[in-house]
Amino acid sequence: MREDLSPLVPLSPAILHILTALAGEERHGYGIMQEVARQSEGQYKLGPGTLYDNLQKLLEHAVVEECSRRSAADNPRRSAGDDPRRRYYRLTAFGRRVLLAEVARLEGVVRHARLRLQTNNPRRAS
């Protein structure tokens, strides 16, 4: 059965970056911000307000979930001296499908744009 992802896809740039940051591993809020800045080579900087506003939305739609304490304790990046205010988040199986659907949509857009640019290439006067 095909899932209806239309209320979520297309994703906003902030959500796309957040989900991409969480696709590899679970991260805390500041980790997500740093990963977004890294993956966009500093072009997209996410503030904490924007991050948590979007995380709230993603948690409500079960796209992202907070890691349980046991799972977070298993995280090799988490040390004994970790700040207790940190909470870790990860993609759910549904969230992974949402991200895959968005990637497929974007691939289609890029393919279409390339095709249009090739066919409508104005001939230069010789």
């Binding site: 805390h28 809020g29 500041y30 911000m33 904490p48 307000g49 991050l51 948590y52 995380l55 709230q56 700040d83 205010r85 940190r86 909470r87």
Partner: peptide, 14 residues
């Protein structure tokens, strides 16, 4: 209540 502490922590860090 849900995100306040985390946001303050990020403020401290960044």
């Amino acid at each position: 209540q849900r995100f306040g502490e985390e946001m303050l922590w990020i403020y401290d860090e960044s």
